[in-house]
Amino acid sequence: MARLLGSLVLLLLLALAVGLPRVPMFRQGAEEGVARADVAGAVGTVGERLPDFTLHTLDGARLRLEDLRGHRVLLAFERSLDW
């Protein structure tokens, strides 16, 4: 009985280890050199003008890219725990 139970748990883990890359939620940022299909083509290439977008600042205000026109803008992307 213990052998059967242990085997079931291990086989489940094995299925997870093999199948995780096929789950889109877990694929984000985890696989090396793989572009996400849902964002591919969403951003332009180098030298191309970015489309306008709106972000929320830390204090809840809304910030549009258009409001920063004429200024130098640095966009930094960082992975967070709630991705």
């Binding site: 883990l13 997870l16 280890a17 995780l20 877990f26 984000q28 940022g29 985890a30 696989e31 090396e32 992975r79």
Partner: peptide, 18 residues
């Protein structure tokens, strides 16, 4: 194996994902 899978999901070791 479990902590490797967690490390894989977190993405901190993306260079060694495979």
């Amino acid at each position: 194996a479990i902590y490797r899978m967690i490390g894989w999901i977190v993405g901190e070791y993306a260079g060694f994902a495979r």
